[in-house]
Design a protein around this nucleic acid. Structure first.
Lengths: 226, 226, 226, 226
DNA sequence: GATGAATGAGGATTCATTCAT
DNA sequence: TATGAATGAATCCTCATTCAT
């Protein structure tokens, strides 16, 4: 969270005082938006590691000093960007990644999830950059960690609704990590291809995940023709 | 030291003189080895992008200038490192990644391949760093490209021996990319866990791959108890 | 300091706000001046090729980073320096290098031009360094190119006013190149001598140029006692 | 002079001993030749300042160590190169730069000198690079100094034979410097043009010098139609 | 808030020169 | 002699961050 933008429930609820801070907040919010969009753009073109705060500020059309008025460092930008992306994702597709109606087949659930995530990634290319993070092997940094943890949580929820209720917690976590790993690997292939080939790769991801999860799901779901 | 001293004869083209250049090259070869080991270490701890040539030289205990006597730039170090790793891999496990005896079940073929690659990766942690490469989105660099192409080729060969002979070339390529992607994603999980959890992840990779490939293999292989 | 403080109003677009940016720019402009003076000094003592940006920054009493905030590279410094010198020259002596009154003798025109240029060079020793440029054979760089082109143009103008109106354009250009070459060569001798000897060399330049141009001028100018 | 290649008049004049050193000398001489040619090539393409000893060694096909066995530093290479060029010049055109027959017109003397020097420069492009030297304003280095002094001396000799016998020594020296300066400046123009334009510039040099020297020569020489 | 100047350590790379072999 | 490995200071330039205005 950038600085403390004056809690939204402050006691200064007088009509006159309300306008001032709100306008300030608004201005700040606009700046933050501006900066995050610039950061997204730069992260996409240069990658997180190579992205420079100066470049982000330049892209945003502000001075470096202004950037640091809203974010304490590069990492914080990535964190905030990730947060907002997760909110966007939630706002767009709701709490669940897939429509969990009773009777939905695994094939359909996986297909819908992959399609949604892929659509989201296509619309927000930074998402991919943030998910992969810097190439430091062990040292996944705060931003990517947060994003990753959040995503894993949602995948776990999804799996919990698919797997038998007696499923081991650790097993679900492991399955979530593997599933997300598969998706990320697949996404890389999807994004590096166009047209029919891209579609083919999307189908591959779906197949891999469906076949991977099928034995775990048991008889819980109906089976589609897939 | 193990080299024959080879008398201090002039550069005359006699039989004994053949040893001379070898002695000289030996020093350089040792340095190269040293530098590559240092680079491996630094790539592992800092990642490829953040690794600095100065840090590599320091780690190798030589001056920056010495590094540049053997490698024109960071990229070249990574390329050479990748080359040597691929040779090592070939030397250790032969041309094929798995023993393709007729009658080998898919489960066994996948299991053996994963075990081998994982053992190799455990022994050579740089391999992972090189496979993943810099976080620059499109910018897969020469080194990673070479490594990746090489690996993809070997996976294609493996798949060609598993899939029906009438399999589409493009399909095999796509399957190879997906399979390698899965393995790389899985490896990340494997390497970030220890003991039983690590073993569990290894088993997951095997399961994912086996289930992914099973429908493609047809009746070509026997089926084990998997 | 001479700038008006300009009250600390926000960035609102009021009339008073106009002063604000000027204050900021002022610091930068001072730094640029400082850096250019430092560069001039270093160019003079080390020559353009050997001059290092770090040395320039050191001479200016700033960090290397500061230098690069104002100039993208060494070349740009030279270009800007050259530009400002040409402006100075123009500001000091006007558009023409010599007073072209009808009736001025060639001797007087040449004499005045040489005196002016020499005075300018004595006051701005960098001018010489920039005119000569790096010792890379073909590689006349942007800065020197610009300066040279500019000077050649002014010499051509001068010659055009001296030579018969039917003079060939190519001939004028050639004559301009030769004249400027003579002057530059002479200047080197002038600058490397002091006192009477220097004066003698100045006279030599005038003689060389006058005698070279005399036959070309025809009856256009009056003849002084020279 | 590179090292001490055993003076050519050493007392070890025995038949047996003679062969050994001579062969060694021969080998050394070949190396030196090789290195000087390489240096000439590199000086021409990179300029003296930018030329690196490593590049020269590489161009010569030897190791850096070998280069330093014959020359203590870059400067020494330039000095030796200059020496040999001056010897070549002398060998080609004799002691005088121009044929000083009584009755030769100044025009012819200047013309012949310029033609000879220009031919020599065309054949030995390094000559130009060495004459101009590094762009360090005052700091003309040993090599160029030597070359320059030598050339000035020869020009002085030439002028002494042209000017009246009662000419002031200082005046001759000054005239020599000016003449050589003019020639060098002109040569730069000549070398940067081709074909007819080059010829035109050659003629300009001749004109400039002739007109410059004419008044000084007095009635000493006949006058050609020039 | 906003600016942009300032920093200085650190990045890759080069180079004249030396030295063990 | 010849080699080529070794040096380390110096090159240009970048970057995250701070600070006076």
């Amino acid at each position: 969270m950038p600085e403390q933008p004056a809690g939204p429930h402050g006691p200064d609820d007088t009509a006159t005082a309300k306008e001032q801070p709100r306008r300030r907040q608004a201005r700040g919010e606009r700046r933050i938006q501006q900066l995050l969009e610039a950061a997204a753009s730069v992260f996409c073109t240069s990658g997180y590691t190579a992205a420079s705060t100066n470049a982000i500020a330049r892209e945003a059309g502000v001075s470096p000093g202004t950037l640091y008025q809203f974010f304490p460092n590069k990492e914080a930008i990535a964190v905030e960007l990730g947060d907002r992306l997760m909110h966007d994702l939630r706002d767009t597709y709701g709490e669940a990644l897939a429509p969990i109606d009773p009777g939905t087949s695994l094939t359909d659930a996986v297909g819908a999830t992959v399609d949604r995530l892929t659509a989201f990634n296509t619309e927000h290319p930074v998402f991919f950059a943030l998910m992969h993070g810097p190439d430091v092997p062990g040292g996944i940094t705060e931003a990517h960690d947060a994003l990753h943890t959040n995503l894993i949580g949602r995948v776990e929820d999804l799996l919990a609704s698919l797997l038998p209720p007696d499923a081991d917690k650790a097993h679900i976590t492991r399955t979530a990590h593997v599933s997300l790993g598969i998706y990320k690997a697949g996404l890389e292939l999807v994004l590096s291809h166009e047209g029919a080939e891209r579609q083919a790769y999307i189908q591959e991801i779906k197949d891999v995940l469906t076949r991977y999860l099928e034995p775990l799901v048991g008889d819980r779901l109906g089976r589609s023709a897939g």
